[in-house]
C-alpha cells in the first residue's frame, strides 16, 4: 500500500477528470433527505459526507435484476457483458460486505455473472464523515478486515485535502488523473487516526464478541417463544433483506418476449423473510413451506447473519451498516437489538 496526498482544490479537478473519462463513476449522491449510489455526472453531486445509502453499492456488481441468458429459436446466449466502472466513496462496512460476496460467489461453483462484473469494477473506499442513526459497524466482526478494494480516500480534518491509499494497480491507475504527491508521515498518521476514531462513535453496539454471539444465538434455535416475540410485528416484507449489503439470495425466472418465441432468463434479488421463499409445490395443488411462520423466517435471518456463515467468512455475515434497522417499518429488524437481547437471556 502506498499513500498519496491531494489538496482540496486538486481533488475537485481529479473527480472532474474522472467524470470526463470514459469509465462510468458511481458514487453517493443525495436523494431528498437520504443518499443513494448513482451515476456521478458532476462534482457538485458528490456527497462523500453521506451517512449511509438506501441500497448498498453491491447493486452495481450483483444487480437487483440481472439477465443471465437470452433464448430464441436458434439457441441461447449468455448476457455477461461487464461494464468498466469505478465505484467511488464506499464506506468500509460496504467494502467488507463486497469482500464477503466476492468470496461467496467465487466459492464452490464460481459465478461468472457476478465475477465478470466484479473484475470490471474499480472500488475506491472513503472514510465515514457522518454516522447514520442505526449504525453499529464499530462493534461487529471487529477482527474482519476488508480486502479486495483498490483504493481508499480519507478527508483530513480541517479540510486541507485528502489522503489517497492505493492498494492495487487499478487503484494506482487513477493517480494519473490527479495532482497527487506522496503523503507525509503526519498526514498518514492523521488519516489512520480518523479511521480509528470513527469506530468508537456508533450510536448502537454489540456487547459481545462474534464468537460468543455465534454460539449463544445458535443455542436459542428451539426457543420458540423468543423468536415468536421478536418476529411478532414482522410484515414479512423482505425490506431488511433487500437493503442488506451481504444478502445474496436470488430467484431465477424465464419470460418470453412479446413475439412469444424469444425471451430471457433472469435472476432477481429474493428475500428469505417473505412468505413464499421456502415454499415448494408437491403437485396436485399441494405445497410445503419449510419456513412457514414469520418467527422461523426471522430466526433464519438472524442465524444467517450471526452464525451460519461465520465459518465460511471468518466472521459474521453482518457488517453493522444499520440499513435493515431503518428500512424496517415495524422496527424489529435491528440485528444489534435482537442479538443483544438474546445475549442477555
Amino acid at each position: 500500500m502506498s499513500s498519496y496526498f491531494i489538496t482540496r482544490a486538486n481533488f475537485e479537478k481529479f473527480i472532474v477528470k474522472l467524470i470526463q473519462a470514459k469509465k462510468k463513476i458511481y458514487a453517493p449522491v443525495s436523494k431528498k433527505q437520504s443518499f443513494i449510489f448513482d451515476e456521478l455526472t458532476s462534482f457538485d453531486d458528490l456527497r462523500l459526507d453521506y451517512d449511509v445509502t438506501i441500497l448498498p453499492p453491491k447493486k452495481y456488481i450483483f444487480p437487483p435484476r440481472q439477465g443471465l441468458l437470452t433464448f430464441d429459436k436458434q439457441g441461447h446466449n449468455s448476457l455477461i457483458a461487464p461494464e468498466d466502472k469505478i465505484l467511488l466513496g464506499v464506506h468500509f462496512y460496504d467494502l467488507k460486505a463486497i469482500d464477503m460476496l466476492d468470496n461467496l460467489f467465487a466459492a464452490n461453483n464460481s459465478d461468472a455473472n457476478y465475477l465478470a462484473n466484479r473484475a470490471a469494477t474499480t472500488i475506491i473506499g472513503a472514510n465515514i464523515q457522518k454516522i447514520s442513526k442505526r449504525a453499529f459497524w464499530g462493534s461487529v466482526g471487529k477482527d474482519v478486515r476488508p480486502h479486495g478494494y483498490d483504493g481508499f480516500i480519507i478527508k483530513l480534518d480541517g479540510g486541507e485535502g485528502y489522503v489517497y491509499e492505493c492498494y492495487t494497480d487499478k487503484g494506482s491507475a487513477l493517480l494519473k488523473s490527479g495532482d497527487f504527491s506522496n503523503a507525509s508521515p503526519a498526514q498518514i498518521a492523521a488519516s489512520m487516526d480518523i479511521n480509528e476514531r470513527v469506530l468508537k462513535q456508533c450510536p448502537e453496539k454489540l456487547n459481545h464478541s462474534s464468537k460468543e454471539i455465534a454460539t449463544k444465538v445458535r443455542s436459542t434455535f428451539k426457543e420458540k417463544q423468543l423468536w415468536e416475540e421478536l418476529a411478532d410485528d414482522c410484515f414479512s416484507c423482505g425490506s431488511c433483506n433487500t437493503v442488506c449489503p451481504t444478502c445474496y439470495c436470488f430467484d431465477v425466472q424465464d419470460n418470453w418476449n412479446v413475439d412469444q418465441v424469444s425471451g430471457r432468463r433472469e435472476r432477481t434479488w429474493d428475500a428469505c423473510m417473505t412468505e413464499d421463499f421456502a415454499k415448494i409445490s408437491l403437485g396436485g395443488g399441494h405445497e410445503e413451506n419449510f419456513r412457514e411462520s414469520k418467527a422461523q423466517r426471522f430466526r433464519h435471518r438472524i442465524m444467517r447473519k450471526s452464525t451460519y456463515l461465520n465459518e465460511t467468512l471468518g466472521g459474521p455475515a453482518c457488517v453493522g451498516c444499520g440499513r435493515c434497522s431503518s428500512a424496517c417499518t415495524a422496527d424489529i429488524a435491528d440485528p444489534a437489538k435482537a442479538i443483544n437481547r438474546i445475549m442477555e437471556l
Binding site: I36, L55, F235, G238, T242, T274, D276
Partner: peptide
C-alpha cells in the same frame, strides 16, 4: 405474494 415495501426499497 410479498408486500410493496420490497419494491420501494428496490426503487430506493
Amino acid at each position: 405474494n410479498h408486500p410493496v415495501c420490497m419494491e420501494c426499497k428496490l426503487n430506493e
